[in-house]
């Protein structure tokens, strides 16, 4: 199993947000995580990627056979975990090209490989830019600076294509995207899907799942996965909302 989360509890400033979550992801799979706001979707992404300030109070996160709790964020990234950010941050004065080369070389150094030759790097940049229909000049600009909402999200997928992670977490990648940009982003993801990697798609809406078809859909509520199903579960949620799941969950927990 690529990722195996066992009984995970996560707290922020002493307040428990994730309360005993289990999730297993195999290579080649796409898992959608849905749920109402404030149920811990982004906290889960932060816990897997190793963001500071998120305290793991209990449980284990196994990735490629290693328990990664306590592993620094950059090591997890270099091990092959990628997060497409919900709100990509701007880094003034640092060109995308420079940023990407630094990231790629950090990964290569981690694997004991020499720095990527300039020619090979530029060729790779061209190829991956085409994948997400990013304009050439965008990579000469500073990281996310002055990018539109759509450009920022495309840029996340572009970085994913460059870094070729084994596990990619897309955190609300569809938020703030118009339908055309959404299609471009989905096309990029679909082209990168393979037997060797896996995706966790965190989303609020079913819309994205029309384009990135998941193998499993999980509903997160009150810090736990309360329901798991196939792609049809997303359609059902779209139709009926989250209330019925909430009711079901609360009824069960009262018993």
């Amino acid at each position: 199993m690529l990722l195996n989360i066992k009984n995970l509890h996560v707290a922020i400033n002493g307040k428990e947000i994730i309360k005993g979550l289990n999730l297993g992801v195999n290579q080649g799979e796409v898992h959608a995580i849905m749920g109402p706001n404030g149920t811990g979707k982004s906290t889960l992404a932060a816990a897997i990627t190793g963001r500071e300030g998120y305290e793991i109070t209990q449980g284990e996160i196994w990735f490629k056979g290693k328990n990664i709790i306590g592993m620094p964020a950059e090591v997890r990234a270099n091990e092959g975990i990628f997060l497409s950010f919900q709100y990509p941050v701007e880094i003034p004065g640092v060109s995308m090209t420079n940023f990407m080369r630094t990231a790629l070389n950090a990964k290569r150094e981690y694997k004991g490989l020499p720095s990527i030759p300039a020619g090979e790097f530029l060729k790779m940049m061209e190829e991956k830019k085409n994948l997400v229909e990013i304009q050439s000049k965008l990579t000469n600009r500073s990281v996310n600076e002055g990018f539109s909402g759509g450009e920022k999200k495309k840029n996340e997928i572009f970085q994913m294509a460059m870094l070729q992670p084994s596990l990619a977490i897309l955190d609300e990648t569809d938020s703030g995207l118009d339908i055309d940009a959404l299609k471009v982003v989905a096309k990029g993801v679909n082209e990168l899907r393979s037997e060797d990697n896996a995706f966790i798609v965190i989303t609020h809406y079913q819309r994205l799942l029309d384009f990135i078809v998941p193998d499993f859909v999980h509903v997160l509520f009150d810090g736990k996965i309360v329901k798991t199903g196939g792609k049809n579960l997303a359609l059902e949620l779209e139709e009926k909302g989250y209330e019925w799941i909430k009711d079901q969950y609360l009824a069960n927990s009262e018993v």
């Binding site: 500071e52 300030g53 964020a73 950059e74 990234a77 950010f85 990509p88 990231a103 870094l163």
Partner: peptide
């Protein structure tokens, strides 16, 4: 901290 985490998530220490 957002900028630092963004970099670290890309493998940059």
């Amino acid at each position: 901290e957002d900028q630092l985490f963004y970099c670290k998530q890309r493998g940059i220490d």
